[in-house]
Every structure is written in C-alpha cells, then in structure tokens.
Design a protein around this nucleic acid. Structure first.
Lengths: 150, 150
DNA sequence: GCAGATAGTCAGTCTGCTTGACCAGTATAG
DNA sequence: CTATACTGGTCAAGCAGACTGACTATCTGC
C-alpha cells in the first residue's frame, strides 16, 4: 500500500508510478518470452541491467542489484545454463568468476532496450510527445535527486 | 529488464519509474513496520487498496488485485488473525464472506496514505514544488490513458 | 607467513504466488 | 421443481525468488 486508497482517493503517487511500470514490464518480458527467450524472467533483468561489458563478478552484480550473492548466483546460473551468459574463472583472482554476456545475451539486452523505447514511444503517442518528454525530464530529475540523497 | 542498460545507457523509462516507486514503498512499509504495524507486509497492500468501505468478497479483491482467490484468501486470513480485517459470512449469499476493515485496519490505511503524501512532499522539496506538481499531472495523464486503453 | 577479509558454494527456510481438485451453496433452463 | 451449470471459497501441493548461516578456498596486509 504505497498507495492505499481510502474511498475518496485514487491515484496516489505510488499507483501513478507503479501502474505504468507494471505495464512496461509486462510488455517487455511478455515480448521477450514470446520472441524466443522464454527462460528470461523478470528476476533476471538485474543481470542484464548491471553487467559490465568486460564482465562482472557475482558479488559485484549482487551489490549493484541490492541482493545477496547467493541469490545472484542462482540467477547467473540459470542464465548460464540457458546460454545467455558465460561464467569463467577470473584469471586475476582464484576465488572469483567472471560473468559475461554471450552473443545471445547481448541479443536479449538489445531486444529489451528496443522494446522499452517502443513502449515509451507508444506512451508519447498517447499523451503527446512534448508531455512525454517533460515527464521523462522530471522523472530524471527526481531519479537523480534520489540517487544523490543516499 | 524493463530497463536493460547497455553500457552507454542509463535511466531507461523503466528505471525512472521503478526506482522512485521502490523508494516510496520502502519508506511506507518501513514506517508502518516501525510504527506498530509489523505484520503488514507489502503483499497486503492490495487489500487496503482495493477493499470497499461496505466490505468486499474475497473473489472480488482477488479480481481487482489481479491474483487468484487462493492467494487473496491467504492475505485476508493473515490480516484477519492480526485484527486488521473482519471476515463474516455474507448474509445475502451462503457461499460468500464479507471482508471489512476493522478500526485498526482503517488506521493502517490512513497511516499509509499520510506517509505517501509525506514522501511526495519531500520529493517536492527535492525537485521543486512546481516540478512535482507537473510530474504528478503528467503521471496522472499517462495513468488515465493506460486505464482507458484496456 | 599468518590473520583477517573476500569470492563463491551448500543447505535450509520463508514469502508470495501458482495450479488443480474439490465442496457447498446459488441460479437457471426445460 | 429438479437436473445442471456456475460461483465463492478451501485444501493440497509446488515453484520462484529471495533470505540467513555455515563453510571452503583464496587473497592481502602487516
């Protein structure tokens, strides 16, 4: 209830943020599933979001995603068994592993980004291009402020 | 990955919506937990959001929340055992039950709403009152458009 | 060269959701 | 006015995605 609605109320700020986000997420993961990547579930998004091109360690991904290394290890393992990432020993540290996107992992990343842009464009058509641009700008401002105030 | 970030990119529309929402949710549920309602978890939010003042049926809540009646029954049961809702047989239908907020359930609802408004005010201080007002307006516009286009 | 920090794994648990099968009460068509 | 279909809710089982705690192996700083 980040947006509990007493009878009179609707459209708390929570709902206003959550609903579009859910619509977007459903579209993106739905399209990925339908488009030949059925093993990619929402939880795996963080890997694609936070992985660096040169490869990342599991702890690093976990840290960035705000979860435990055990949980991240499960996600990485799933993606590895389906060929979206490769996991190799890190030559510079015998304890560590290096996780990297494979060709098809990069495909997924690109596809997701494209879908996101597509949905954003649809929304622009819905509420007006200028309005969508303003909305994005204001959200960026809020986003940056929230990042700073940590 | 409603917002997969290829190296160059940051701040996809997904991240811009998701991050503030997460901040808000954490604040609201954190404050509720700290403020004497530790049994209220994020999953229970839907009950407070969708319940009608006259009382609602389980199927109705499930429908509105977009989940199965079994799942909703679990949430309602949890809230009932902690005294936030009452569950009585529906006099007009022998199969059905009527779920209503108790006094303390209403308290929670009000507290959550207040917290939400508080966070919104903090954000206004962060990015500017006018900007926050514009942001809300644009989000409302998007929200309404998305509702309509179903 | 040893003590403590770090990367990752194993095992167990919890929450929040699902599906499938079912029962009991209600509504309806013939 | 009864047989049938529908509906509200429950029981049981299972899965996904997170968690904690305990452990091994390796690395690093003094």
């Amino acid at each position: 209830m980040a947006d509990s609605t007493l009878p009179e109320i609707e459209r708390t700020i929570g709902a206003l943020l959550r609903v579009p986000w859910q619509v977007l997420a459903e579209r993106v993961y739905g399209a990925l599933a339908a488009g030949g990547y059925p093993e990619i579930r929402p939880a795996h998004g963080v890997v694609f979001r936070y992985i660096r091109a040169e490869g990342s360690r599991i702890v690093e991904l976990a840290e960035r995603a705000g979860m435990t290394k055990q949980s991240m290890a499960v996600l990485v393992d799933h993606l590895a068994t389906h060929g979206y990432v490769s996991v190799e020993p890190d030559p510079s540290d015998g304890r560590a592993k290096r996780v990297r996107l494979t060709r098809s992992g990069k495909e997924v990343q690109r596809a997701a980004l494209k879908l996101s842009r597509q949905v954003e464009a649809e929304w622009a058509a819905l509420i007006g291009a200028q309005e969508m641009a303003s909305l994005r700008q204001l959200l960026e401002r809020l986003y940056d402020s929230l990042q700073d105030s940590r």
